[in-house]
Amino acid sequence: MKTDPILRAWFSLLVLSGASVAAAFIAGAGMGESVVGVLVLLFAWMKARVILARYLGLWQAPFWQSGFNWVLGLFCLLLLGLYLAPTVMV
């Protein structure tokens, strides 16, 4: 049976949101700040990709989908760099 792509997107977003919160909670259990930063921002980027592709319909425009994915990915890397800067500078 073929699953509804929008329903699948919604479910993916729920799972990714849960994973993001779980990663942040694990931080309290001693996981390194850098690992938490990478995981939380990776999940945020993946959620943004799902919304762009399925909710906003960019799956119909691969050129633009790829462009948005790259720019958002680079933006998340910028955020990661800023988040980890205090650790690196110590």
């Binding site: 977003l13 990663a23 938490v36 939380v40 921002l41 945020a44 959620k47 943004a48 919304i51 909710y55």
Partner: peptide, 22 residues
């Protein structure tokens, strides 16, 4: 109209982790 709503959604999935989790 729905594109505007998804834009609000898109902004939140970036805002929430950075402000509340990081």
């Amino acid at each position: 109209g729905t594109a505007f709503w998804h834009m609000v959604d898109l902004v939140w999935v970036l805002l929430f982790p950075v402000i509340y989790l990081l």
